[in-house]
C-alpha cells in the first residue's frame, strides 16, 4: 500500500491559507512514509477543522473546541496510531482553552497544528482569541477590547516540550516543522500563521510575509528563556521555526502496561480475569 494521500475538493475560499497547510500536511505525511490508515486527524469545528474531509485518512471531526480530548482518548487506546489535531485559533485557544492547557500538562504524543488566522472565518469575521487589541471586526466594530492570547508563551509556561510557529505562505518550511512535530515524542504545538482572505483585512498575506523571519542557525531551541522571548515577539518581526524542543517523558510512558505492553485496542477481553476481584469483597 502506498503512502500517497488522496485529496477531496475543499469548500475553502480561493486564496485561503488552509490550502497551503493541507499541501504541507500531505507532503509531510508522505515524506515520513506513514500510510493513510495509520493516521487519525482529529478536529473541532471551523474552516480549519474541515481538514479530515479533504485528505483521506482516519478522521474524527468532533465538536467546537473539543478536538484535543478525543485525540487524547484515541492515543491512549491505540498508541500505534499517529494522532494529529488540526483546528483553528478560536477552536483551540477560545472554546477549547481549558483542554489546550491540560493537554500540554499531559504531554501525550500528539502533533497539534493550529491554523491561526487571528479571526473567526466560519462565523463571519468576529474577533478570535488571537485578534490584536483594538482591531476592528464585524462584531467588535469599535475595536477589540481584550488582550490577545499568546499561545506559544502559554504553551511554554505550561511546560510544552515542542513549541513552533509556521507560516502557510512558506510550504517547504512548514513541511519541515510538521515532520518534526509528528516525529516528536510528546505534545507538539505548531501555531501556523495563515491569512483569512475574506474576513481579516489587517493580518493579510503580505502582513505576515513582511514580518516572518527564520530563527537563525545559531538559535538554541533548548533554551527556554530565549524561547519565551521569541514566543512573545509578535509585532514588526515574527520568528518562525522551532522555538523550543526538549525531550520529555510522555504521558503514556508513565503507564507501564501501555509503554511495555501491546496497544490497549489489541488486548483480548476475558471476563474471567476479573473474577479474582471477588475476593476483595468476601
Amino acid at each position: 500500500m502506498s503512502c500517497q494521500y488522496e485529496l477531496y475538493e475543499p469548500s475553502w475560499c480561493p486564496g485561503c491559507g488552509n490550502y497551503m497547510i493541507r499541501t504541507a500536511l500531505k507532503m509531510a505525511l508522505e515524506e515520513l512514509g506513514i500510510k493513510p490508515h495509520e493516521v487519525v486527524i482529529v478536529s473541532g469545528i471551523g474552516q480549519a477543522a474541515k481538514m479530515p474531509h479533504y485528505i483521506k485518512v482516519n478522521g474524527f471531526n468532533g465538536l467546537h473546541g473539543r478536538a484535543l480530548p478525543p485525540a487524547i482518548g484515541i492515543k491512549m487506546a491505540n498508541k500505534n496510531l499517529h494522532v494529529i489535531v488540526e483546528s483553528g485559533d478560536g477552536d483551540t485557544y477560545g472554546e477549547g482553552g481549558n483542554h489546550f492547557i491540560h493537554a500540554i500538562r499531559r504531554n501525550i504524543d500528539i502533533a497539534h497544528f493550529v491554523h491561526d488566522n487571528q479571526i473567526y472565518g466560519l462565523t463571519k469575521g468576529q474577533a478570535s482569541p488571537t485578534t490584536a487589541m483594538g482591531q476592528v471586526t464585524t462584531l467588535q466594530f469599535d475595536g477589540v477590547k481584550v488582550e490577545p492570547v499568546k499561545p506559544l508563551a502559554l504553551a511554554l509556561t505550561m511546560g510544552a516540550g515542542f513549541v513552533a510557529r509556521g507560516f502557510s505562505g512558506d510550504i517547504p518550511h512548514l513541511v519541515g516543522l510538521m515532520k518534526e512535530a509528528i516525529k516528536y515524542r510528546g505534545y507538539a504545538l505548531v501555531d501556523i500563521l495563515q491569512p483569512c482572505v475574506v474576513w481579516n483585512k489587517v493580518n493579510t498575506f503580505s502582513w505576515y510575509k513582511n514580518r516572518v523571519y527564520y530563527l537563525p542557525e545559531s538559535y538554541d531551541y533548548t533554551n527556554k528563556e530565549e524561547a519565551m522571548k521569541k514566543a512573545l515577539e509578535f509585532d514588526d518581526r515574527i520568528p518562525i521555526g522551532i522555538l523550543y524542543k526538549v525531550e520529555k517523558e510522555t504521558y503514556l510512558d508513565k503507564f507501564d502496561f501501555i509503554k511495555e505492553g501491546p496497544a490497549l485496542v489489541d488486548l483480548e477481553l476475558n471476563p474471567l480475569d476479573a473474577e479474582k476481584l471477588m475476593d476483595e469483597f468476601r
Partner: peptide
C-alpha cells in the same frame, strides 16, 4: 495496572465524554 485500564482524571466533564468517545472510536470499551 492489573487490568490494563487507562484511567484519566480529566480537566472537566466536557473533556470526559469527548475523551471516552475518542477511546471508543479507536476501538476500546470506554
Amino acid at each position: 495496572d492489573e487490568f490494563n485500564i487507562a484511567v484519566d482524571q480529566v480537566e472537566d466533564e466536557v473533556a470526559a465524554l469527548n475523551m471516552a468517545l475518542g477511546a471508543s472510536y479507536a476501538g476500546v470499551r470506554a
